[in-house]
Structure formats: C-alpha cells, structure tokens
Simulated scan of single mutants.
Amino acid sequence: MQEYQRKQLLERVNKESATIGADIPDRIEVQGEEIDLRTFVFEIKRRDTIPDGERERVERAKRNLRRERLERLERIEENRVDFETGEALAASIIGIDRALEALDTLRPADVEGEARRQETMDQKRWMSFLKKALGQEDASGSKRGGY
C-alpha cells in the first residue's frame, strides 16, 4: 500500500464523524471468536438499560471490541496489509466504533445506585486531592508526619 493510501485510511477511521450513517456489521470475528455483533447490540440496546445480570457480558464485549479495533488499526498503521485489505479493515473498524457507541450509550438498570457509586468515587477523589494539596499525603499516597 502506498503511504498516501495508508494515511487516507487512517484519516477515515479517526474522523469524529466516521460512524455517521455507518452500519454495525452482522458478524465479526473478535479475538478469534465469531459473533453476531448486530444481533448482540440490538438485543441489548432494545432494553435501553443494562440489566445487572448482563452488565459483565456487555463490559466484556466492549473490552474485546476495543482490543480488536486496536489490533485492526495497528495493521493499517504498521502498513502490514495491501490497500484492499486496508479498506476492509477500515470499514470494519468504523463498524466496531458504531457498535461501541451504541453500547456506551446504555444506562445501568439501577440508575440511582450507579449515581450513588459515582458520587462516592467523586468524593474519594476530592478528598485525596485535598490531602495532597494540603501536604497531608505525598504523591505515593502515604501520610506525612506520622499521621
């Protein structure tokens, strides 16, 4: 593949608007496993929230999709494919991005519980920041002055 072709493919994949109008692939091989991606996404998406029992399955799918996206992108970046294969990889990356966007917009079924967890985490981060800012903790998180 020529350098300008590789750059065009990378620009196409990295464009913020790349997923507009893009379809989620029917089937895709992710981490060596063939999955019905479109069916999976629509099955989860039709609920509008992620039931507690499905949360781990959805998170695992998102991790695997991100890993697969990265591997496909690296094949283009490292110029390890011909242009035709690069075009197919770019289209599949955009399809993966579209699926990830759909899965990322889902809310947990327990919205109030999730909000409480987020608030607790925010408070912990704020307290950690204050301790560091006031010199009560060093960068490693250990307390100073024998506290």
Rank of each mutant, 00 (worst) to 15 (best):
M1T: 11
M1K: 11
Q2P: 03
Q2H: 14
Y4I: 14
Q5D: 13
Q8P: 00
L9M: 14
R12D: 08
R12W: 13
R12Q: 15
N14S: 12
K15T: 12
T19F: 04
I20A: 13
G21H: 11
D23A: 12
D26F: 06
I28A: 05
I28T: 07
Q31A: 10
G32P: 03
G32V: 08
E33M: 09
I35R: 12
L37P: 07
E43A: 07
E43F: 09
E43C: 00
I44D: 00
R47W: 10
P51H: 08
G53D: 09
R55T: 02
E59Q: 12
A61K: 12
A61Y: 02
R63Q: 11
N64W: 07
L65P: 05
L65N: 08
R67P: 00
R69D: 01
L70G: 01
L70F: 14
L73A: 02
E74I: 07
E74F: 06
I76K: 04
E78W: 05
R80V: 06
D82R: 05
T85I: 10
T85P: 01
G86I: 06
E87H: 02
A88E: 15
A88I: 06
A91K: 14
A91F: 01
S92T: 15
I96A: 05
I96T: 05
D97Y: 04
L100Y: 08
V111A: 14
G113N: 06
E114Q: 11
M121L: 12
D122Y: 04
K124C: 01
R125I: 11
M127S: 04
L130W: 10
K131S: 03
K131G: 05
L134W: 11
D138I: 06
D138P: 02
